Simulated scan of single mutants.
Amino acid sequence: MKRPWWRRRWLWIIVGLPLLIWLLSVTVWTWWAEEHPAEERELRIQLHQLLQERFPEQMRLPDHRIGFVPQGGEGSAQRHPDVILIHGLDEPGDIWNDLIPELREAGVEPWEFRYPNDQAIDRSVDLLAERWSELPGDTPVVLVGHSMGGLVIRDFVTRLRHPEAASPAVEGPPVQGGILIGTPNHGSELARLRVWLGLREFVAQAQEEDFSLFAPLRSGTGAAKIDLRPGSQFLTDLNDRRWPEAIPIQLIGGMLGQPDAEIIEAVDAVSSELGEDQLPRTFETWWREVGEGLGDGVVPVSSLSLPEAPPPTLVPASHRGMLVRASPDDEIPPAIPHVLEILDEWEHP
């Protein structure tokens, strides 16, 4: 028996009205947030603080996911680190898995610094500063950062540990050098899509014993994505400060996709057929421009450079592929040999 028309109408109202309200709310919030990034950032920070105050146990990060974690093997906690590894936004925890064994084999003592990586970047830097005096000894250490981790390094060094024309605000080991891998020094538009990065971290944590419904909020409530946008106040302030001349810095970035042999042969064949000798050169220029715009798929090449640093070394890889194998049988990720070479040069100038 067919339902009366008035029941069908009420069904549409009951189901459709909440959906319409939700879509309208999302649209209004998105518009407001785009127009008021500073206010959105402050709201997200306050929300994170409120959750930490109201639910301290549920919001507390496990010990193994915050602070310094020695990675040099047995007894490494008693030795000073040669290198501190600092991960980026919404990192599930495996970004250094391929680099750490190579560092150990090269005789380098690696430690990780782990932090709530989705909070405002300056709050993560302040946490690094609070923990810095925990490092053993006063032997200089090299800081290696992936993605947003490079911004943590720059802010820590230029604002707190080695500020220009000011005394250090932090005691502890001096910084010997900085290696920034895939760091968006001028921002990344893809930071707006951080919800997908957060989902990756959420799935990774779901397999751990410390998983809870609060897990996605423990690392922050999204303030970092605002700091990562091109032209953000955080990046403007950071780029107004210069990296210290006495401390070396090196940049490594990725570029997706190089034309394979078949494409090159096809372009050469078309060039020969049409008698257009400049076609291969034009194609090469166009391909490179596209590649630089895409960069590693997250950070464009134009966002890597710093005036006080040498030009970035570019490797053919994606944002994570610079450091992480897609499968155990793959070759060593292409950024790792450059990291080892830089460390060796700094150790034996």
Rank of each mutant, 00 (worst) to 15 (best):
P168A: 10
A261G: 00
G187D: 02
V26F: 07
L24F: 05
M322C: 05
S327A: 13
F202W: 15
M322P: 06
A38K: 13
W22R: 11
H162R: 10
G222N: 07
G93K: 04
E164C: 05
R54F: 01
R241K: 15
V267I: 15
L20E: 01
S302A: 15
D329Q: 14
N239H: 02
L323D: 07
P334H: 07
I14N: 04
G231C: 03
R200Y: 02
A169M: 06
I336E: 06
V141Q: 00
P140R: 04
G291M: 08
F283N: 09
M255R: 15
L180Y: 14
R281G: 09
L340H: 09
R288D: 05
H87Q: 13
W286V: 14
W96P: 01
E209I: 12
A166S: 14
I153R: 04
D138N: 15
V141S: 00
N239D: 10
I264A: 10
E164D: 14
L23Q: 13
F113A: 11
F55L: 15
I13W: 11
R9N: 03
H319M: 11
V315M: 12
E102K: 14
H64S: 14
L228D: 09
G178N: 01
A77Q: 12
P110G: 06
P116C: 09
R54I: 12
R9M: 14
G88T: 10
A120G: 02
L217M: 15
M1N: 10
S147K: 05
L323S: 09
Q258H: 06
I121F: 03
T282Y: 00
T285N: 08
V324D: 04
D63V: 14
L135P: 03
L19N: 10
E112G: 00
W196P: 03
W29M: 12
R288M: 07
I86A: 04
Q176H: 01
G293D: 10
L256M: 14
E265G: 05
P328N: 07
T183V: 11
G295R: 08
E109Y: 00
R131H: 01
E262R: 12
S327I: 10
H64A: 13
E35V: 09
T313R: 14
H87T: 08
P216F: 06
I153E: 06
T282I: 06
E105F: 02
L256F: 03
P333G: 07
E105D: 05
P316Y: 00
W32L: 13
A246Q: 11
I263E: 14
D94W: 11
